[in-house]
């Protein structure tokens, strides 16, 4: 078990190093597919390492450890790169007197450009299609939207967003 866990942790650290090194090497617009490819590569590396040296059971423990580390890491990653609240704080820090009018902040973070950019990203990820400046959900987008709408309803979260 311990060998499996250690291998899982080592391969996860390798995953962190490789994906950050790739981000340093070239600009990547849509980072998630690359992160997933690197992670799956490291999962395979761990499975092969343990299969060769110890067998299937220690490998399973390492896979569980890697999966847990991954689900802990990804929210942290997305908060760092995409949170509007974090970007607001950074913009304020760089502003004169660390202060801005609310209207100036809205121009940055609640603007047409922000929404248009987000829609383009959703198109590139296959959730929406664009035709003549109108956006429609794809079957993949509809499945995600319906699933989460059902969860929001089940948990009584309200519209949110």
């Amino acid at each position: 078990m311990i060998q499996g866990l250690i291998s899982g942790v080592v391969w996860f650290v390798l995953f962190l190093i490789v994906h950050i090194a790739l981000f340093h090497r070239k600009h990547i617009q849509n980072s998630f597919p690359l992160i997933m490819r690197v992670f799956l590569g490291c999962l395979t590396g761990h499975a092969v390492t343990i299969q060769v040296t110890r067998g299937a059971i220690p490998a399973m423990y390492g896979l569980v450890a890697m999966a847990c580390l991954f689900i802990l890491y990804m929210p942290f990653y997305y908060i760092t790169v995409a949170s509007l609240s974090i970007q607001t704080l950074i913009l304020l820090r760089d502003a004169v007197g660390q202060s801005l009018r609310i209207t100036e902040l809205r121009q940055h973070f609640a603007s047409d450009a922000i929404v248009a950019g987000r829609l383009k990203t959703m198109v590139s990820n296959g959730y929406l299609i664009e035709e003549q400046d109108r956006y429609r959900v794809t079957s993949k987008g509809r499945l995600v939207a319906r699933s989460f709408a059902a969860l929001k309803e089940f948990w009584r979260l309200g519209p949110g967003g």
Partner: peptide, 21 residues
């Protein structure tokens, strides 16, 4: 579910009564 920006957009578009937004 409660705060996702893209997710909320996808739900709004999928539940809209017009053909695309």
């Amino acid at each position: 579910a409660d705060r996702g920006f893209s997710l909320r957009i996808a739900i709004d578009i999928s539940q809209s009564h017009v053909d695309g937004m």
